[in-house]
């Protein structure tokens, strides 16, 4: 039992194959995510970043390997996957707000139905979260009435309303107009500073530098290099990472 007490998620030799092994989206990924870490995952398109992230809360079922969350195997038949997902908030590239519900309802539906919060308590909490991201005045609006940046900020606080222990971000700013990227990154930075454990797939290298505690570079379904942002950006070792950084920086 040499496991560090601070490790929340431990991934060992994770594999995900498609088409009977023809496509190896993940080909043996091993890493630990510790409490309070902000892990930034970078890599070219198709390198398996989304698959890795989505395996963590079992939106994708891995073909092999193990994932433990707070010490217990999440793929064990006895694990309640829905309970587990409540502890991992997820933010998607395309927001995925519920268009038939108001912003407030988007944020209160899960706490009310899953945590048994009263309507009052859930709304109070939602409103204070909305205030944190400067959108309290849009509580009664529908998602279609918001800009992309606003939608993504709502998606983040919707996930936060469940009090997750980890937040997973899959390219949260990639679908946004450039002028809206900043407002979403600001929310994420504040979240990181508040001590949230985060795993972020992103192409925002500035964000990785500023708040990332560790950067993972993936290619062809594997972790090629893993280090502090400093080291990754100023002293990359692997050739593929070097050429990738040349393209994106």
């Amino acid at each position: 039992m040499s496991a560090d007490n601070n490790v929340i998620i431990s991934v060992k030799d994770l594999k995900k194959y498609y088409n009977d092994g023809e496509v190896k989206a993940l080909d043996g990924v091993t890493t630990d995510i510790k409490k309070g870490e902000v892990v930034v995952v970078i890599g070219p398109s198709g390198s398996g970043k989304s698959t890795f992230l989505r395996s963590l809360n079992l939106l994708e079922r891995p073909t092999g390997g193990t994932i433990t969350f707070e010490g217990s195997d999440i793929m064990a038949p006895s694990t309640d996957i829905n309970k587990l997902r409540q502890k991992m908030g997820m933010v998607f590239q395309h927001f995925n707000l519920f268009p038939h519900l108001t912003i407030l309802r988007n944020m209160t539906i899960a706490p009310m139905k899953l945590n048994g919060l009263s309507k009052e308590d859930a709304e109070k909490k939602a409103l204070s979260l909305l205030e944190r991201v400067g959108l309290a005045d849009r509580a009664k609006a529908y998602p279609s009435q918001l800009s992309g940046g606003q939608k993504q900020r709502i998606a983040i606080v919707r996930a936060l309303a469940m009090d997750p222990e980890v937040m997973l971000f899959d390219e949260p700013t990639s679908a946004l107009d450039p002028e809206m990227v900043g407002e979403v990154l600001d929310v994420m930075k504040n979240l990181a500073k508040a001590g949230m454990t985060m795993v972020c797939v992103t192409h925002e290298m500035g964000f990785a530098r500023e708040v990332g505690t560790r950067v993972i570079f993936m290619d062809c379904g594997r972790i090629i290099e893993e280090n502090t942002p400093e080291q990754i950006f100023t002293n990359p070792q692997n050739e593929r990472l070097k050429s990738f950084l040349q393209k994106v920086l």
Partner: peptide
């Protein structure tokens, strides 16, 4: 996926 990831 959004519904499932919230824990529904």
């Amino acid at each position: 996926e959004a519904g499932r990831s919230l824990g529904f």
